[in-house]
Write a protein that binds this DNA or RNA. Structure first.
Lengths: 151, 151, 151, 151
DNA sequence: TTTT
DNA sequence: TTTT
């Protein structure tokens, strides 16, 4: 019906870029969003919120965003679930971004020089794949439907 | 920094009302939010989003909301984690509501007659408690800090 | 960049439906949104917010919404200006809706029976037209560009 | 009921800071927010949205924000009206900010050195005052209720 | 009356 | 584990 999210925070790492079987780009990153109020111990806590971006925006994020950069994300909350390799149902909540604004900051910060996109695939098997693909690592399209999220 | 969510959906069950050790009310429920677009199979999918409400609003939700009722929720995304009883770190994402609007609908729908609040505690131990309390079931305050979420 | 609005309120009147020169539907209505806090006199004030909807959604609003009905509106704030017939620049702020949800309530309330759309054109000339059209009244398309708002 | 706005844009000028009769600070500025899509002439249009901030946040805005700076604003839409000095009712729409985030950019940009707050009062009488105060110019509190907006 |  |  109505499902709207707006976040402002910093990337905890460079985005990861992948491609679905039929060539759709999808980028993922985590946004660290500080809470506005401190807790009872007087500490400022942070929510680490997983973000998913599709298509052209995914590629732009991979090119222009990096660890430590500030970004504003507008999108919707998505809750999906899958069966893990122990046969247990796992629930994943993430924000599907429809609009990402690149703000300043971050390391190496010659504001928005282009980065070399980081393709994910790092030896550690991605166990929450709906369809595990051993070739995911070498930048070949992964064998899942466009509906699924490849991470 | 900035973390804003607005949702419109229906409760999948009656809210559960609890009290922290020092008497703060907390209600929880799941909001079923239909997606605006259908998937590739032409089906309309639904996101089931866990909601947490505190204090006075919690008690109002327990009184006036029920299974099937429509509600608008405004709040923020919170990601917390705890170690479960198998020693594994579990991540929980939920929306902490700051404003809940009661809309029509639902069963027995003599619009907003008061309901008998449903206290949770149903025999099945609540395993994601930070601090398990055997008395949670009989409506006595539960023994955890106000910071923690009792579910 | 980022311009997001979510409102929940009631229509002060039936929506007005018009068509631009090239046949695009546009509906307008005012949403009465109560403030959450009362003022210093203990009264609850209300903001009356002008809403604009385009295309298919405009026609659905004209059919299914009416005076007193509750609606949730998601969109963006738009500030436009035009020169009035006294040669003075007038500023208009309105919410351009991208998503309107029909909620219950309202008069005659046999929930969402279809209404006869109300075409605007009531004898009183609409002086904030960019391009005044004497035929606007008899439901013929109005002679303005799609960019402009016909009211 | 529910009235939520999130904006990201740049200040068109330094904020103006004033004080109500009983000492409450209020800052005002205009946020230039680019539209995401270009119009039929291929130009990117901009909405100029008036912002009001109260109390402590007002003083922080006056100190840390300036012309050209980027800011994220979270708040609610307010529509008020008053009778102008020609006896005509004038409607004013503005965003009452509850949370302002200072982002980079702007002139002189030694990021967030403190600025000398700009008090409004520039010789031109502020004609949309509900209660005109000839002393508003010399930084003395203005003689209106806290409920009213002094600009 | 507008910002980059 | 889900609502209409």
């Amino acid at each position: 019906m109505l499902n709207r999210v707006v976040l402002l925070g910093r990337l905890t790492k460079d985005p990861e870029l992948r491609y679905t079987q039929n060539g759709t780009a999808v980028a993922t990153f985590t946004l660290a969003v500080d809470r506005r109020v401190t807790n009872q111990q007087g500490e400022r806590e942070t929510d680490f919120i997983p973000i998913v971006v599709w298509s052209k925006q995914a590629e732009l994020c991979a090119q222009y965003l990096g660890k430590g950069r500030q970004a504003a994300v507008e999108g919707r909350i998505q809750v999906r679930n899958y069966e893990n390799n122990e046969g247990r149902r796992v629930y994943v909540t993430e924000v599907v971004a429809e609009n990402v604004q690149f703000l300043g900051g971050g390391e190496g910060s010659g504001d928005f020089e282009q980065r070399t996109p980081v393709f994910s695939g790092d030896g550690k098997p991605s166990r929450n794949f709906q369809n595990d693909n051993p070739f995911a690592d070498d930048q070949r399209p992964i064998d899942i439907s466009d509906d699924d999220l490849p991470f």
